[in-house]
Each structure stands twice: as structure tokens, then as C-alpha cells.
Simulated assay, not measured.
Amino acid sequence: MTSQFKFDSGTIVLDGGFGTTLEQAFRLDISDSPLWSAIAIIDYSDIVIQTHLAFLRAGADIISTSTYQCSYSTFERAGYSYIEARKIMSESVELASQARRVFYEEQLRNGDPIRDIRIALSLGPFGASLQLAQEFNGFYPPPFGPKAYSQVENCNTFGNDGAGEEESIRSLTQFHFERLLIVFENEAAWNEIDCIAFETVPLTREIKAVRRAMGLLNNRITAVASTSGPGISIAKPWWISMVFPDGKYPEMTQDGNSKMVASDVIGAAIEKPSAMYPSPSALGINCTPVEYLQILVSQFEENLESQSIALGFKPWLVLYPNGGDVYDPITRSWVDCGSQSNSAEQWAKALTGTSHTLSNTWAGVILGGCCRTTPTHIEALRRIIHC
């Protein structure tokens, strides 16, 4: 069961870096919280709405909830209970929905064409829940990975240890399924979201775990529908977006000597689709410098074309690169690599230049920004797309 995206256009605009916009534009000091952008749901709900509105006014067709780092473990580290975690995560969906309603009202008052705004439930990888965020490296502690992060020596692959990898997939599946259930079991929140975004996934076994978690969710949806009637619980389109910090996938090859290339990753996302392992509605690349996208997309397409018959449909492509700076998990801060000297216009031109060369492999493309991209970047992006 894979629900497909339905858009009126073949190019859709996603929002930009929500957490970094809270920090840069609204001057919120949130980097020390395990919850990062989600802490604003609790303390600055009005600013969360204003941030969503800033991206909508800039031209975003899809806005993402501020739930990227939400999990039971991050809420526990931040001092919140199980019940509070569920309430806060659902509140994030409501804040995005409020922003959408306000924006619709603005369009009506101004006589503007009404845009069909979608809300994406943002879910980061397991690495984003760790005390030293590891979504860019994939150094996960057992049973999620072979070894926790160390300042001396690290690894993110099990090599030939098949049992260890399978245990990791089971643990990661449970992690992602628990978070999905938080929103699914709140009927109001589930009805407000339009799609699900699994973001910045750094490991192929976590891609498999996400697919398995969605399979479990689909089973739950079917069970609820059978007792409550059709239409009560509806499956949502979803995407898996991967990160390539230096143009390579963070996961090492089995011999541990080199990082994977993009074509190595596609199989984990789409191979052998089944009820237990559904394939995503879209594949993505996020929080990666824009200059790497062209070659990465080409590698995606090369592998995807050979498996498209088994997939049974054309997926969408989601591209939302970062602003070019590098995240330091030790200091929990962004290191300026000179990218800020590049204008939003230059960034947007580079991104749209990538999408203009896409093959017919894709049903369409969703373009936006990740960390260190602002409403100004999204405004430039929409202007170029719709010029």
C-alpha cells in the first residue's frame, strides 16, 4: 500500500530550514535542547506559526512540522513525560494547520489565487535523537548500530555480521513506528497531515527499517478501517530523503574502506516492494550542498530505471539542499564555509538547474531547502520556477 502524490503541477515548492530559521530570523536559542526546533512548540508557539507563515508567503506549497527531533528518548532527555511527548508532537501538527488556515484567509482577503497547501510530518533519523546528533555519520550505539560515537574510532556498518544488522533493523523499525503511532493515534492530527517525510537518513539499514515501520503502519490503518469504516484512517504519501554530506553516503562499504555512492542506496529504498516493505512515494536528498545534486540524481536515475518495473509506479523526486555550511555535532552549531556569500538567487538557480535536466524516471519534483536556507531562498526558488 503506497499512496501517491497528487499535485496539479510537476514542480512543487517545499519550505526551507525550519530550525535554523528559528535561530537566524527569530533569534531563538534552541541549539542546546535535545528537541531543537520542537522546543519552540512549547515555549514559542506563536513564533512557530509565524515561521510557517514566512515560508508560505515566500511561496512554499508544502510546510513541514517542527517534529524533526521528536522521539520518546529526546523528550525524556528534555524532561518531558510520555504523555507530554505525545501531546507536544500533536500540537506541532496543529500549529502548522493554524498557519495554513491563516494563510488561506490572507489569500481570500487579498484576492490571490488559492494555493493547495500540504503539511508534511517531519521525522528525522535515529541519529537525530542521540545526544551527539549523528544523522550525518550514522554512528549508532547497540542495538541500533555496531558502536556508539567515539572521539577515537567509529564505524557505522556491521560488515559481515548479518545477525547484528537484522537486530539493528528491528530496533530502528520500532523507533520509527512508535513515532508514527503518536500522530496516527491522534485522529485530528492524522487528518491534518498530508504526507510524511523521513529525512536525513544516513544508513541503508535505517531505510529498510523505515519501510518496515510504514508496513506496520499500513497494517494498523487497514485494521482500523475494517472496524471504523472506510475513510476513517487514510494512508498518506511518504518520502525517504537521504543525506550525502560530501557527495558520498555516510555509510561505509562492507569492507569499511570507503563510503557508498548514491546508486548503492536506491536498492534499499525500492527493491522487492511488498505489504511488509512498501516502497516510498518519493525519494529525496536533503541537507546536502547543492553542488552535489546533479551527479547524485544521475546515480539515482541509473539504478532506479533498472528497478522501475518492480516498483510499479514513477516516484516523485524531492531535493532540498542546505545552504552550504557544515554542522558540528560536538558544538551543536553550524560552521560557516563561506556559503553565505552566495546569494539566495544563486542557490535557487543551482537547484532549479539540477531539476531541469531530470529524466522521465520521475513523476515530478519537489524542491525546497534544508538547514541554513531561509524564506528568502524559497522566495527566489519560487520566482525562478514560475517566471
Rank of each mutant, 00 (worst) to 15 (best):
F5Y: 15
I12M: 05
V13Y: 02
D15K: 05
T20S: 13
L22C: 11
F26E: 07
D29K: 14
I30S: 07
S31T: 08
S33E: 08
P34C: 06
A38E: 07
A38M: 05
A40G: 08
I41H: 01
D43K: 14
S45D: 14
I47N: 08
V48H: 00
H52D: 08
A54I: 02
F55T: 11
F55S: 08
L56I: 10
A58G: 15
R86Y: 02
M89A: 13
M89D: 06
E91Y: 08
V93R: 00
E94V: 09
E94F: 10
S97V: 00
R100S: 04
R101H: 12
V102L: 12
F103W: 14
Q107M: 14
I119K: 02
L121N: 07
S129V: 01
L130R: 01
A133Y: 00
E135I: 01
G138R: 01
P146E: 03
Y149K: 07
S150N: 12
N156Q: 10
N160E: 12
D161N: 14
D161R: 04
G162A: 11
A163K: 13
E166S: 12
S168I: 01
F175S: 06
H176C: 09
E178W: 02
L181R: 15
E185V: 04
A189H: 01
N191F: 04
E192V: 02
I193W: 00
F198W: 04
E199H: 13
V201F: 01
P202Q: 07
I207A: 03
V210G: 05
R211I: 03
G215C: 03
N219E: 15
I221T: 11
T222I: 10
T222N: 15
V224H: 08
S226A: 13
I232T: 13
I232L: 06
K236N: 11
S241Y: 01
D246I: 04
D246S: 12
Y249F: 15
N257P: 02
M260F: 06
V261I: 12
S263T: 14
I266S: 04
A268E: 04
A269C: 12
E271L: 08
K272N: 15
K272W: 02
P273D: 09
S274G: 13
S279W: 00
A282W: 00
L283M: 12
G284A: 11
N286P: 09
C287L: 09
L293G: 03
L293D: 02
Q299S: 11
Q299W: 03
F300A: 08
N303L: 09
S306N: 13
S308R: 14
S308P: 02
K314Y: 04
P315Q: 06
W316T: 06
L317C: 10
I330M: 10
W334P: 10
V335E: 14
G338M: 07
S341G: 08
N342C: 11
S343A: 10
E345D: 15
A350M: 12
T352F: 06
T361W: 00
G368E: 02
C371K: 05
T373M: 01
T373G: 05
R383K: 15
C387E: 14
C387K: 13
